[in-house]
Design a protein around this nucleic acid. Structure first.
Lengths: 149, 149
DNA sequence: ACTGGTAATGAAATTCATTTTCAATAAGGA
DNA sequence: TCCTTATTGAAAATGAATTTCATTACCAGT
C-alpha cells in the first residue's frame, strides 16, 4: 500500500495551519511515513539527504516541530532517552518497540480507565494522561537470535 | 521518617560494587532520596551545592550513572523529554507525575501479564519490558487551580 | 594512627545535539 | 507574471553531557 495519499494529507494539514507546501517538507514527510522504525533527527536527515542532497538538518528539526504541533508525530521513549520520533497513527495507540532492530508496531491498550480510576482514588491525583510503551523482540530478531545460538 | 538509613544502604551498595564512599556521593544520594520530584542533573547540582559549594556538576553526572547502573534511580519521562531522574522504590513500580509542580508518587500496576500476552500473540513480538507513566494534577495543584478560577 | 596505591574529584576543554541568526530563495496570492 | 513573505541552508551560537588531567582523599595494609 502506498503512503502517497497520506503524504498529501499531511502536507494539506500543514497548509491548513498556515504553513507552505515545500519540497523539503514533502521529502521529510515521505521518509517519516515510510519508516518502520522511530528515527533520530539525524537519521531522518540522512535519509532525506539521499533524495535531496541540499536539504538541511535545520529544516528537519523545524519540520519535526511543526508536525509535533499538529500531533502527527510522537516522541519514542527508550531506556536510554527519547531522541527519536515516529508517525502517530489513529488516535491514542501505543508503541511496541523492538530493542534489537528498532522496528515499531502499534497496539491499542484502551483499558486504562479502571487503572486510572483506581490510582486516582488511591493518590488523590487527577489523572489526565498516560504514556505506555512495550519493549521486546520482533519476529525477525527472534529468528536471528535463535540462529546465532 | 528519616531517610538516613536508606542513604547508608545506598552508599553501602555503592561500596559493595567497588565504589568508594565519599562526601560528594553522600550529599548527592541524600538529595535524591529527599526529593519528592524528579530532578534534572543541574537541579540536583544546585541542591547539592547549597550544602557543599565545591561539589561539581561532573560528579553529579558520574554519580547518577553509577546509581543507574545499580538500578537505584530511574529516568522520568515527560511529554517534552526525559532529562530528569528519581529514586526507584521497591521493584517495579510506576510513576504518577504532577504536570504542574512535578511531585511524583508511585503506584504498582502489576496486571500487565494479560496485556503483554495479548499484544505478543497479535504482533509476534516477544515482550520483555514495559514503561508506564501517568500524568495528572496532585491534590495541592488541584486546589491551587480551583482557587485561581 | 600512618602510609601508599589508586579511585574520585573539580576545573577546563571538548564533544555533540539543538537552536538562532541571517541573507538568499521560492511558494503562492494578486 | 510580480510581489510579499514564509522558508531555506550555512554558519554561528547555545547548552547539556562527556572527556581529560592534575590534585585530593579514601581506605587497605601495615
Amino acid at each position: 500500500m502506498s503512503v502517497r495519499p497520506l503524504v498529501n494529507e499531511w502536507l494539506l494539514q500543514l497548509q491548513a495551519n498556515g504553513f507552505r507546501i515545500t519540497h523539503p517538507r514533502r521529502v521529510i514527510v515521505e521518509e517519516l511515513l515510510t519508516s518502520e522504525k522511530a528515527l533520530e533527527p539525524v537519521d531522518l536527515y540522512a535519509a532525506c539527504r539521499r533524495r535531496d542532497p541540499k536539504l538541511g538538518l535545520v529544516t528537519v528539526y523545524r519540520t519535526l516541530d511543526q508536525l509535533e504541533q499538529l500531533d502527527l508525530i510522537q516522541r519514542v521513549h527508550q531506556a536510554d532517552g527519547c531522541h527519536t520520533v515516529m508517525r502517530k497513527q489513529n488516535g491514542h495507540e501505543h508503541l511496541l518497540v523492538c530493542t534489537s532492530c528498532g522496528k515499531t508496531v502499534t497496539f491499542c491498550g484502551d483499558n486504562f480507565e479502571s487503572l486510572s480510576n483506581q490510582v486516582a482514588s488511591e493518590t488523590g491525583f487527577t489523572v489526565k494522561d498516560h504514556m505506555l510503551q512495550l519493549f521486546g523482540l520482533c519476529p525477525d530478531c527472534q529468528g536471528r537470535k535463535a540462529r546465532s545460538n
